[in-house]
Design a binder for these strands. Structure first.
Lengths: 141, 141
DNA sequence: CTGACTGCAAATTATTTGCATGTCT
DNA sequence: AGACATGCAAATAATTTGCAGTCAG
């Protein structure tokens, strides 16, 4: 994934700097959504001088390219994860916070129903599920 | 709705103060999700001395009682709306921000599919749709 | 009366902006 | 070389906490 991102970033004319590489690596290797601050800590393993500001700016760029997804949670808002292309949604584990995405096409099927019920013309949606991932279920029942 | 909320609040043993009445009224009469600050401005029509802090504390209480729902948006996070009981979701109009809720039972049907695809045991979910409400569609095509 | 509630101000936390310097291409 | 990018510090914005005064029950 990392290589694809690098290619995309260069293709878009953005520069490939040490700071960006570090953030990219951290995002790709993350086992769940991270806050900007957590991302900075993680990415500093690759680039110790990394500033929080740069993390925000890199995330902004990546979100613009659709490579990163902003995740909202009940309690604390805004975490970021690598996103897969296409129309997908995420499930987050309530114990370990590990997130995986799944195909959300099924969801589009219920759009007509919602439009009928509400009278709205639906143009988009945004779904997140919460649950227990396989490992956490095994480890704790 | 306002009367029901008042009854619920008293039933739970919370006091019914002028500040709370003002926030309740503002929430009930709102035509869309409001930020805490916007809510304060709106509620000051009833109780001019209302502080932002109290708005937050009142929202916290109401959210705890399930009377208010926290809404997240792509850009600015966190708006609050009155919520209907039961398992429902919201559609927000992208033009006027007016929100209505709809029955989300259909969604539960696709939970098994997601569990199969991801291996997660889904315990909850959270959906928001965006679109154009009837009035905005008429007014602008 | 009295404890829960309020609201001000200050403290936190999250995110953005200004600017001089550094570094990809 | 030169534009884009960085990172520090300061500026904003959003939310929480400390506390003395107030008010519903």
């Amino acid at each position: 994934v990392y290589e694809q991102w690098v290619a995309r970033i260069q293709a878009e004319g953005y520069r490939l700097t040490a700071a960006r590489k570090a953030v990219l690596r951290a995002l790709v290797e993350a086992r769940g959504p991270l806050s900007a601050a957590a991302l900075q800590v993680s990415a500093r393993g690759q680039h110790s001088r990394l500033g929080l500001v740069t993390v925000y700016r890199t995330l902004e760029m990546l979100e613009g390219l659709g490579l990163v997804r902003r995740i909202h949670a009940e309690g604390a808002c805004h975490g970021f994860t690598a996103s897969s292309p296409g129309h997908r949604h995420a499930v987050t584990c309530e114990r370990c916070a590990r997130a995986v995405e799944f195909d959300g096409d099924d969801l589009c099927e219920l759009t007509p129903g919602v439009e009928r019920k509400t009278g709205y013309r639906i143009s988009g949606h945004w779904l997140q599920m919460v649950g227990l991932c396989p490992s956490c279920r095994e480890g704790r029942g």
